[in-house]
Amino acid sequence: MKPDAVEAVIAGLKDAGVSIVCYLPDSLLKELYVALDADPEIRTIRVTNEGEGAAICGGVFLSGKRAALVMENSGLRAAIEPLARMGMGAGIPVVMVMCYRGQLGENNWWAIPHGMTMEPLLQAMRIPYRIVEEASAIRRAVAECYAWSYASYYHSALVLGGSVVR
């Protein structure tokens, strides 16, 4: 992940008032995790799977603090169950930041399913998302995810693709 993109994500999270980030690390966003861990204004919580991270973020929402779930897009598959129950059943929102593994240009066979499933799953869940390809678009996109999720009380997602992560 490129340094200007890392800076833009963190700046966007701070603009939105995020103080807690749950993550399960992956390789495309590895620089982001290091920067988040080092930031004194953000508490990072490492989780054992993305579903657990989504549920923790839901609890943070109920506390009045703001959280983000950062992950590889394969984590969306692991998180669908708690996301469906929290979002559709109770209106407890989770804002997600994920990389676009499996996008055109992917050169790992194991990552192809991540690309094939991400957008259909987001659409099936009726989760609005924005795929950003340029670092200059990240900060505003993060702000708009939080604005939408705190108006709808439903999940939203920022997807980091293209030259932002490679």
């Binding site: 807690i20 923790i56 609890g59 943070v60 109920l62 603090k65 169950e81």
Partner: peptide, 15 residues
């Protein structure tokens, strides 16, 4: 929410 209860409670505790 099966599997979500204690993670949600921990999120509350963190917040």
């Amino acid at each position: 929410q099966l599997g979500c209860v204690t993670p949600q409670a921990f999120g509350l505790a963190a917040g």
